[in-house]
Amino acid sequence: MKRFRWDAAVGLLGLALLLVGSYLGLFEAPAERHMGDVQRIMYVHVPTAWNAMLVLTAAFIFAIASVWTGKPKWDAVMTGATEAGVVMGALLIAQGMIWARPTWGIWWDWDVRLTTTLIMVILYAGILVLRSFVEDSDRRATWSAVAVIIGYVDVPLVYFCVRWWRSLHQIQSTPETVSSAMIVPLRINSFAILFIAIWFVAQRARLELARRRAEEVAPPPRRDRRQAEETNP
């Protein structure tokens, strides 16, 4: 049965925009006067950063809704946003390292921006791993939501640390500090990755709801429950 899937349309739109924005960024935008062509990494790195923090902010809001209402749909979108945040955060670090080598001269240094970003990825990845160990679906939803709410502390830290403390990473650029010729591909790729992220979150949420339905159809084998009781008397 075919029915209209809004998230598939959003995802495909994101993909198309990413191709357009990346083409403009790679071939139409000017090279930076000091960084040269290497600066073109900005058109994927900065949108990835914005959207990684955005989906984790969404996860924070979904987590509040989840623990407040106890409804499975909020737990599902929270899981989706958290996982998308981990994937994009890890990608963000990889892109950043590739950009850092030719510009800063190093792959990595323990400055406050890089460190808080790494903590962010490890923290949320840890929450997803721990989540998978909890069998009871209500308990799983409550505890992972509480962990996501508390863990969210690190996200504003990632954003503001470069303003609060000295760091190797520069502070945020503004439209005034970025050449107007670079703004268009940056904006296009920002919306592109936003739409792709929305598709990620929606797919992962659907997966979570499907797993929950499957659990209700066929509960997990008793052996696992006994093991869980032994380790947690």
């Binding site: 000017p30 006067r33 510009t103 001269g105 190093i106 520069q170 500090t177 050449s179 010729a181 670079m182």
Partner: peptide
Amino acid sequence: HRLMVKHDNEYAAPGEG
């Protein structure tokens, strides 16, 4: 033995800036 460049937040085309 470890010299790192810390650039500012300005991105300009050649001739600008």
